[in-house]
Write a protein that binds this DNA or RNA. Structure first.
Length: 561
RNA sequence: UGACCCAUGGUGUAAUUGGCAACACAGCUGGUUUUGGUCCAGUCGUUCUAGGUUCGAGUCCUAGUGGGUCAACCA
């Protein structure tokens, strides 16, 4: 990796220690194991960056493994969406794996466990099994079926597999310890009967292995060295190891499960169940709504893979609970877009300006720099004329010295154009300002080199020539939730905090160079923010999303009053 | 009436494994700027508490406090 000096996170320390104590670089292998039952979100992005980042750092393979053991919830559509998201983030997996590819091996191992008297078929209902489980403070009771003979267990398990039983009639359980202080060790279920077609194995199987039985064994089959998961799986580690103990051979690598704290982002939710509610209740337009914290939503909103990767690197990984402020994500996308987004001009809240001493019907094409951060970006021509739009917020009849914009009797520069002076304004019957009459200094043209053009005026405004302007739908987004941690209130539902103003649609008046914008194009509307062209956009009806505003110290000043 | 995990600025993460508490974001002040953007400089502020070990503790030990996790035929 490029940065040698970078400090290590605790997972990297674990790997370093393993490397010192006998692992070779060739032993290292990681995996990202999503269940294909929904869309990936920003929390997954951290896990992806962690696992694939480790792969890059140690030049080790990383598998993309679909944990597809529950056909009731999983679909091929999600597999495709997940692959797209991981690729978009910029990572390449070594092998595309499916837990369902291991169904036969898992079955054979289960038969082996039965023969070793370490697993048995339980014929009780799930309610009965649950009632015998005990509580965290009281031990459980053993099932009346716990001591069935090996022969009977073999016969029943075979019957489960061959479809002789209905859903729920029997389960296969590991015979461990009903008195363990770890609830997961109290004879966990390994297999259930489920007559449901699987998106890959179709109807080949009517019994499906449970997560705990599948995950560690899959890691072992793939020879994953470090199996990283979130903290809620910590109690599963004991069981992960118990299952591994039953099958590992000494000439193969034994995977390790290690746990890290899930990253929480402020002002949003990431549980699939809650995201689904937002979609189903129509509070957003879909999984890829630009307000959603899904990877597809972030992509549509205009976030770049680089910005998300940098964000994940910056927040790092640890074991304590955390809430990362979204403003850090904003910072990273601004940081990246500042370097790559061409500057253009557009007015979202128009106020008409007439330059009274500018010739009627005249048009002029001015040169405008495309990106001050990138000389190779070159320049373009923008049209200037007698009638322009500026933002309503950029004009006041009177204002104090802190207001660097246009006021009666005051001067500002029009970006890439001339210095103008506001002489008068007209209002409608309600007192709203409808037009500002200005004069311009013909010798002050930007880049002309004249003494007047070099004059310093305090404010510079963006603008657009009315006769040349094109229109577009512009979608302005705000946080989806008004509360930093909407799902952490015991007395309130997270939906109570949905921000009613999270989407605002306006008509934008844009410089004509934007006419041929294509879906996905990213620009900076100067002084307003970074925008991209939404997938709803057509050549006739352009649609822009505001990815993020620019940093706005003026807004802060004004708030303070 | 248990087991386990965690505790460093407003936020997130570091600290050469016991040796000057650092980085980024946010905030604040100033400079540069034809974007109140960018950039530059400065500033703010922290090891949960009480003991102990040690020449030396964010790091090790003990106790406490606070937060979290665990009882799906989900993953």
């Amino acid at each position: 990796m490029a940065e040698e000096a970078k400090s290590l996170n605790f997972i990297e320390h674990i790997v370093e220690e393993d490397l010192r104590e006998g692992y070779t670089q060739k032993d290292l292998r990681f995996r990202f194991p999503p269940e294909p039952n929904g869309y990936l979100h920003i929390g997954h992005a951290s896990s992806i960056c962690l696992n694939f980042g480790l792969g890059l750092r140690y030049n080790a393979p990383v598998n993309l493994r679909f944990d597809d053991t529950n056909p009731a919830k999983e679909e091929k559509e999600y597999v495709e969406a997940i692959k797209k998201d991981v690729s978009w983030l910029g990572f390449e997996w070594d092998t595309e794996c499916y837990a369902s590819d291991y169904f036969q091996q898992l079955y054979d191992w289960a038969v082996m466990l039965i023969k070793d008297d370490k697993a048995y078929v339980d014929s009780q209902s799930s309610e009965e099994i649950a009632s015998q489980k005990g509580t965290p403070t009281e031990p459980g009771k053993e099932s009346p079926y716990r001591n069935r003979s090996v022969e009977e267990n073999l016969k029943l398990f075979e019957g489960m597999k061959s479809g002789e039983f209905k859903d729920g009639e029997h389960v296969l359980r590991a015979k461990i310890d009903m008195a363990s202080s770890n609830m997961l060790m109290r004879d966990p279920v390994m297999y259930r009967v489920l007559h449901k077609a699987h998106h890959r194995t179709n109807t080949d199987w009517c019994i499906y292995p449970m997560y705990d039985w599948t995950h560690g064994e899959s890691d072992y089959i793939e020879q994953v060295s470090h199996s990283l998961c979130t903290l809620e799986f910590l109690p599963h580690r004991e069981l992960y190891n118990w299952f591994l103990d039953q099958v590992v051979s000494s000439d193969k690598l034994r995977p390790k499960q290690r746990e890290f704290a899930r990253r929480n982002l402020s002002h949003t939710v990431v549980s699939k169940r809650k995201l689904l509610q937002l979609v189903e209740k129509g509070l957003v337009t879909g999984w890829d709504d630009p307000r959603m914290p899904t990877i597809s939503g972030l992509r549509r909103r205009g976030f770049t893979p680089e910005s998300i990767r940098n964000f994940a690197d910056t927040i790092g990984i640890a074991k304590r609970e955390n809430v990362v402020d979204v403003s850090l994500l904003d910072f990273h996308v601004r940081e990246h877009l500042n370097k790559i987004a061409p500057r253009v001009m557009g007015v979202l809240n128009p106020l008409k300006v007439v330059i009274t001493n500018y010739e009627q019907g005249k048009e002029e094409w001015l040169e405008a720099e495309n990106n001050p951060e990138d000389e190779s970006a070159g320049s373009r021509q923008i049209p200037f004329s007698r009638e322009l739009y500026i933002e309503q917020e950029d004009f006041r009849e009177e204002a104090n010295r802190k207001f660097f914009r246009l006021k009666l009797g005051g001067e500002v520069r029009l970006k890439n154009g001339y210095i103008i002076k506001a002489e008068s304004c007209t209002k409608d019957d309600d007192g709203n300002i409808t037009e500002v009459q200005c004069t311009y200094d013909p010798k002050s043209k930007s880049g002309s080199g004249t003494e007047e053009s070099l004059r310093k005026v305090k404010g510079t405004l963006h603008w657009v020539s009315i006769p040349h302007a094109i229109t577009a739908e512009v979608r302005l987004y705000d946080r989806l939730f008004t509360d930093a941690t909407p799902d952490s209130h015991k007395d309130k539902d997270f939906l109570d905090f949905v921000n009613p103003d999270s989407l605002q649609k306006v008509t934008g008046y844009l410089e004509p160079s934007l006419k041929d914008s294509k879906i996905g194009d990213q620009v900076q509307f100067q002084r307003l923010g970074y925008f991209n062209v939404d997938k709803d956009s057509t050549p006739e009806n352009l649609v822009f999303n505001r990815t993020v505003t620019l940093r706005d110290t003026w807004a802060k000043l004004e708030q303070k009053g």
